[in-house]
Deep mutational scan, measured.
Amino acid sequence: VRQEELAAARAALHDLMTGKRVATVQKDGRRVEFTATSVSDLKKYIAELEVQTGM
């Protein structure tokens, strides 16, 4: 499950970095929206997932 969450989070980051205004991911069973202003929060979430998956 964590691998899927990590892939979704990375895709969301890619979307935001390429101009999409809002990206949505499932985080702990709930839907979370990230915007360009919350990229740093999304990067932290990705880092947490990488630690949890041993990457």
Rank of each mutant, 00 (worst) to 15 (best):
L13N: 00
L49I: 05
A36P: 14
G19T: 03
G54V: 05
A36D: 12
G19S: 03
E33N: 06
G29D: 05
K27V: 15
V51H: 14
L49E: 00
A7P: 03
E5I: 10
E33W: 04
G29I: 02
G29F: 02
E4N: 11
E33G: 02
G29N: 05
K27P: 03
S38G: 10
V51K: 13
T37N: 15
G19H: 04
I46V: 05
L42F: 01
E33M: 06
Q3E: 12
R10P: 00
T18A: 12
S38D: 15
E4T: 10
Q52T: 11
V22C: 10
A12D: 01
E33T: 07
T35L: 07
L13A: 01
E50P: 00
D15W: 03
E48D: 10
R10Q: 07
V51S: 14
R21A: 15
I46L: 05
D28N: 09
E48W: 15
R21K: 14
V22R: 06
T18K: 10
V1K: 13
E5S: 08
K20W: 01
V1Q: 13
A9P: 00
V32D: 04
L16Q: 01
S40E: 15
G19L: 00
L13K: 00
Y45E: 02
A47I: 08
T18M: 13
Q3T: 13
V1R: 13
L6F: 02
Q3H: 13
A11K: 14
T35Q: 07
F34H: 04
K20A: 15
G19C: 04
E48H: 08
A47P: 00
A23I: 09
K27I: 15
T37P: 04
D15R: 05
E48C: 10
E33R: 07
V22E: 07
D28M: 01
E5H: 09
Q3M: 14
A7M: 11
E5D: 09
A9H: 03
A36K: 11
M55G: 14
T24G: 07
A9T: 02
A47E: 14
T24Q: 08
H14Y: 07
S38A: 08
I46Q: 00
A7T: 09
V51N: 13
Q26F: 08
S38Y: 02
R30Y: 12
A8I: 11
V25A: 05
A23S: 06
L6N: 01
F34T: 03
R10L: 10
V32K: 06
E5V: 08
A47F: 10
V51Q: 15
E4I: 11
A47V: 08
M17N: 07
L42K: 00
H14R: 10
L16K: 01
L42E: 01
G19R: 02
M55T: 15
H14A: 11
M17E: 12
T18C: 12
K43I: 14
R30K: 14
K20Q: 11
T24D: 06
V1M: 13
K44E: 12
Q52M: 14
R30G: 08
D15H: 05
T37F: 06
R21V: 13
D28L: 01
V51R: 13
T37W: 04
A7V: 11
A36R: 09
V1E: 13
A23K: 02
V32H: 07
G29H: 04
Q26W: 09
R2S: 10
Q3L: 13
R2K: 15
L16D: 01
T35C: 09
D41C: 08
M17L: 13
L6D: 01
V25S: 03
I46P: 00
L13I: 02
D28Q: 06
V25E: 03
R2C: 11
L16M: 03
T18F: 07
V22T: 13
R2E: 12
A12S: 03
T18P: 01
S40G: 15
Y45A: 03
S40W: 03
M55R: 11
Q52Y: 08
R31Y: 15
F34N: 04
L16F: 02
